[in-house]
Write a protein that binds this DNA or RNA. Structure first.
Lengths: 335, 335
DNA sequence: CTGTTAGCGCATTCAT
DNA sequence: ATGAATGCGCTAACAG
């Protein structure tokens, strides 16, 4: 493992000052052609690589952004892909934090450690509570929130609305003639789930239907709970003819439950999910679901953070990206 | 955004030297109880956070490891999860690089940029060629290879064998009475695919069966190509009764192709995959496949790199983790 | 127990 | 067009 090469070593070899070498390597004008070429040659020969730390210490910029995720689940991965895309274009690197386990302490650690290391932080924690956000608000590091649905915050936010598409999905089922539509929620803490449930209720009420609370079951965004919740729904005396789940995993669980009970999808039960994770199109029948633009969220948030770091203005309200209903094979008209 | 607090600022407030503050904050003994407490209080009040860059510049250690992945596909994600687990335990952070697009140049950039920023690099690029590995061998940064199956290298490597489990999976199909077993490869460049194919051939030969080259189709690890390759296989005059795909995506594509042709799985065709990505257990019927211990690979590689950074010895040969065949619903005895 | 000195590698400022 | 001095924030090594 050869020792790292420094600017001054190159300077020595070339008989110039370190400053000149620095100027050459950063294309900072005012260097004679001859010197420039010599320096470049020697630098390449010696395998010079700039020390990111030293540069960062001096300039206050490291060209690294941190991305904070709850875990590496499919949704977070899509966000991360978008972030990666935006960052690599801007020649930034991505520091990845997952905070699944010990929530609170971990989050403080993140903001602390990233101090100095990251130029900014992207936070994609849909379940973040007010307390979490306060930590970030107090942080010295510029922060952009992704998909935050909790209490108001002055932090710049990029999100996709949950209420409207949930209402639309429900209206789509109503349009297919369904009248008893079950709903499987996510965990209680999630602002996302809450908004989606609100959209469901709004659609029913708008259609002049009372919301039968027996048709609303508590899930937790997992396939297993989705299975259980759907099993309960389908065991009801007056069975729902359609189930809208707060996310795709729950919906897939619901599909399994229906199959388990000998019900056909979509003939006997229609199922609608939310998110459009890759799995949604890979199950059979492929799942009708709301496509949430996670990749675009990541990309947009990264770009926003970069522009803020460039001193550009912070948008007044949250940046809101559109979702769309993707109709696939798991839904049909009520028979 | 309050300005960052420095050691000397705390020192000033406390009427002590920066050195003492540093000693307190790093538990580097020899500080009176009184001073210690005062410093700690003030530091907390002012919201002190150590500057990782400065510390790294001084100590040569940043507590950051880089993970290089081809993309954020399910397999890479599992590896990343393992790495995260190991690193967070050791209080290291993870810098994530994906190199999908412009392979060569990108790789040089990675080793270059990470110079100084990462204390070491974990490389999980199953398709890495000899040329790539040479770049890493020349790198000044300690490197551990994950799942590298190419030409020999002196770099420490953590991998899961492909040959033996592929042979076992094939033997399992033979044991079920299958005699015409199709094989769908990954892309040619992949050492992984090559080893898996070798295992397939070995099992057939060992059973005294000639390998019918019509039964070996070229895929590229994608579901789409898996579909196409399987369609070809199933259109053969003498149709195979089982298909072994070099990875799960191809296998799922093969299942779709079979269904498309009106064939039942597993009654008419058995399908076996490789990897055991989450999708494998979510499709219907759930896929029989070889479980590759990706999480453990990531975890093991991270631990190995950490121990190397600690000055411990590098294992002589590659560290080899075991895979196992997971029998699910996509395989049955030939009827 | 505590303080001083010095320097990690780079880039900004001001000379030359 | 080039160079010298200086300091980013921290900590080894030594001195008091």
């Amino acid at each position: 493992m050869p020792a790292p090469v420094t600017l001054s070593e190159i300077a020595a070899r070339c008989g110039v000052s370190a400053m000149t070498v620095s100027n050459v390597l950063n294309n900072r004008g005012k260097v004679s052609q001859a010197t420039r070429e010599q320096v470049l040659t020697v630098a390449r020969q010696m395998g010079y690589v700039p020390n990111v730390l030293a540069r960062g210490l001096k300039s206050g910029r490291t060209q690294v952004l941190g991305l904070v995720l709850p875990a590496l689940d499919p949704v977070s991965v899509e966000i991360a892909q978008g972030v990666q895309a935006a960052l690599s274009e801007a020649r930034y690197d991505m520091l990845l934090y997952t905070t699944s386990a010990d929530a609170g302490r971990e989050r403080e650690r993140v903001t602390a450690l990233s101090q100095g290391l990251s130029d900014g932080l992207l936070i994609a924690m849909p379940r973040a509570a007010a307390a979490d956000v306060q930590i970030f608000e107090r942080s010295r590091v510029p922060v952009v929130l992704i998909n935050y649905n909790g209490p108001d915050t002055r932090l710049p936010t990029v999100l996709a609305d949950n209420f409207v598409p949930a209402r639309q999905a429900t209206e789509y089922l109503l349009g297919l003639g369904h009248r008893r539509i079950g709903f499987i929620t996510g965990d209680a803490g999630s602002g996302q789930s809450h908004e989606r449930l609100r959209g469901y209720r709004a659609a029913l009420e708008h259609a002049g239907l009372a919301v039968d609370e027996h048709l609303v079951r508590t899930g937790d965004f997992t396939q297993v709970r989705g299975f259980a919740a759907a099993a309960e729904l389908l065991a009801l005396p007056e069975r729902p003819t359609a189930i809208f789940a707060a996310n795709d995993f729950s919906a897939v669980g619901a599909m399994e439950a229906a199959r388990h009970l000998g019900l056909r999808i979509p003939e006997d039960v229609s199922v609608v999910g939310f998110d459009d994770i890759p799995l949604a199109s890979q199950v059979f029948p492929p799942l009708t679901t709301v496509r949430h633009p996670f990749r675009a969220l990541g990309e947009g948030a990264a770009q926003l953070l970069l522009s803020i770091l460039d001193g550009k203005a912070v948008p007044a309200g949250p940046v809101n990206l559109a979702s769309e209903l993707v109709v696939r094979g798991s839904t049909a008209a009520r028979t």
